[in-house]
């Protein structure tokens, strides 16, 4: 489905591994909490990349479109909760950033997008359907902001009922 798929990232059709990570210093978020609607997992290497080309700043502006599909966006990096909260406050982000900090990168590893040498995740996107299956995934070069067109295309597909293949009974 996707040309730039890294060899290891979980592919469409697989069940999205559940996880529980801190979203704030005193709150956890589990993937299973979000079941029943599409979820966009956006793994990114680190907080505080330059503003104008920043992927999280872009997605912050796309939230109304994601909401239109009933989809919840979640950012994940190996930064800690205090780093995330400072970053989210400074950039006025209106979606949760999860800290995949301890054990470091455990969730990124489960999704096949951990970069052991750097100690960060890949820049990787997963769109998960309401039943918890991966519907679409994409790994970008670390320095390239993938934009939102791939996510929106995947959400379009989820929103369109599959064409019947046989004769209706």
């Amino acid at each position: 489905m996707d040309q730039q798929h890294s060899g290891t990232a979980l592919a469409p059709g697989q069940t999205a591994p559940d996880f529980t990570l801190p979203a704030t210093p005193d709150q956890n978020l589990s993937l299973s909490d979000l079941k029943g609607a599409p979820v966009i997992l956006a793994f990114y290497p680190a907080d505080w990349s330059p503003v104008c080309g920043d992927q999280m700043a872009l997605y912050n502006e796309v939230l109304p479109e994601f909401r239109h599909y009933g989809a919840q966006l979640v950012g994940i990096s190996t930064d800690g909760v205090w780093c995330h909260s400072a970053f989210a406050a400074e950039r006025k982000l209106h979606f949760p950033l999860l800290a995949d900090f301890e054990p470091k990168g455990e969730v990124a590893r489960a999704y096949g997008v951990y970069r052991a040498h750097e100690g960060t995740s890949e820049r990787a996107l997963f769109v998960i359907d309401s039943a918890g299956r991966i519907a679409w995934s994409h790994v970008s070069p670390v320095g390239i902001n993938p934009g939102a067109d791939g996510i929106l295309g995947a959400l379009d597909q989820l929103a369109t009922p599959p064409q019947p293949t046989g004769v209706a009974s």
């Binding site: 104008c52 992927q55 993938p146 934009g147 939102a148 067109d149 929106l152």
Partner: peptide
């Protein structure tokens, strides 16, 4: 812009 892949300005 989003649909055209715009990712920053």
């Amino acid at each position: 812009g989003l649909r055209s892949g715009v990712n920053g300005t």
